[in-house]
Design a protein around this nucleic acid. Structure first.
Lengths: 240, 240
DNA sequence: AGCCGCAAATAAATCTGATCTTTGAGGAGC
DNA sequence: GCTCCTCAAAGATCAGATTTATTTGCGGCT
């Protein structure tokens, strides 16, 4: 009777509906309506709601039911919620939010990494930059994305701070979102790659201020490019 | 038979044991051992484990049991996990980690707030600074802490970025941790309060660079004071 | 006559116990 | 020595009994 686990399916479906705004804050559901709608047992609905409660998306009170919480109460750093919002209609807004956050913390992480990175991490970053150069010339955007993600993940891990390291998943999503959403030029800005090399070099020689400055340039360029392409895409569709 | 909800108790107890390192990564538990140890039914253990799984603290596989995950897989931004670690033996390390993170993002948030804060938010910040001044003179550390938290929460909310706003809980914990752990001088540094006023003024007149610089000074001072007191506390207990 | 407080009814979450499916391990056979 | 099969341990699910909290109606008080 207990076939494949169905809890993840219910959790995912329900989470997406909330993240997409289909179930606005204040909406009330009952466990009974859930296991009726999804054709599952009470325990399955109950556990899915339990996870959603842990994420701050809903609160569960007796005699009332399951109430969708205000977005301000949501655990916006939960990778699951980030994914849901990126897949929903709030995608652009979520990307802007994530980019702003990244602009805040990644230069600081670069400075820390310059103080704490070991030789292997510095080497990995240098190798990632080399790969970025190669794939940019070949105009292989997917491979470029992978090298870019590897660079930033290594940097964040090298900061020696577990919370910065955990933000690697967030940066991955931002980079992937830009590439997949065509918010990135076909062949990457050569200057941007050069700045990546600057960060790697600064980290290797232990120069926090230089690493931070170079990283800040990277992100500023990315935000400007993204804004320019977004504006061109929404306001003036004259690219053909 | 369904008395007071016991799931939160089990979740809390188990989470603390993992966060404290009492159950190191790789430890395996079974649901049966859990509901035996805590005197609860299977579903209670199961739901607690489900939440822990959502937090990345454990993975659950059939025939194996519940396995404690590596810390790198943990959702270190989950407020519950932060609280558990602050209450456990990792308290000092967690405070350092949080402070480093705060140093990264809060200046950026201040810059954003200077662009987006409305009049009410600017007024709230100014009022919080006034309260800080009063309570510092009265040497009322608890009231000072509350005003300090109000200042930073308002600033982060004024950034207009929900993820920065969500980090207010984190800043609250850092500030409370410093005060409660006696990592703060009996009467706060008057310069620090002055810098808070600078931030509020820069936000009100819409000067991002000034707000960011003043916020950076606040955090640098806090880190230096914290380091000095921590060193005095651990190495040279000559304060009496 | 209107309002406040108390108590019964009901709706919903919560817990319990049992059953089923999966899956890893060990042994037999090739 | 390798593959396949059998077996059992553990998690995942289901259906049902229980408790709690909100709501609503009634009675007494102002």
């Amino acid at each position: 009777m207990a076939g494949r686990p169905r809890t993840p399916d219910v959790l995912d479906a329900l989470g997406r509906r909330i993240a997409a705004g289909e179930l606005p804050p204040g909406s009330v559901l009952t466990l009974e309506s859930l296991d009726l709608a999804y054709g599952v047992s009470r325990s399955v609905s109950r556990e899915a709601v339990g996870v959603l409660t842990a994420m701050g998306l809903v609160t569960s009170r007796r005699r009332v039911g399951v109430t969708v919480s205000e977005p301000s109460a949501w655990n916006v750093f939960d990778p699951r919620l980030i994914r849901w919002r990126l897949d929903g209609p709030e995608r652009d807004a979520q990307l802007v939010t994530l980019s702003e956050l990244r602009a805040g913390f990644e230069p600081a992480a670069a400075a820390l990494a310059a103080t704490r990175a070991d030789a292997a991490q510095a080497a990995t970053m240098a190798a990632a930059v080399a790969d970025m150069t190669v794939h940019a010339r070949a105009q292989d955007l997917d491979a470029y994305l992978e090298a870019d993600q590897r660079f930033h993940s290594t940097l964040l891990a090298a900061s020696g701070n577990p919370m910065y390291a955990a933000l690697a998943a967030l940066v991955d999503e931002v980079l992937a979102g830009r590439t997949h959403h065509h918010l990135m030029p076909a062949d990457p800005n050569p200057e941007a790659i050069e700045w990546h090399a600057d960060v790697a070099a600064a980290v290797r020689r232990g120069a926090p201020a230089d690493a931070e400055a170079a990283m800040r340039r990277i992100i500023t360029e990315a935000q400007e490019a993204q804004a320019a392409l977004a504006e061109a895409g929404t306001e003036g569709p004259d690219g053909s």
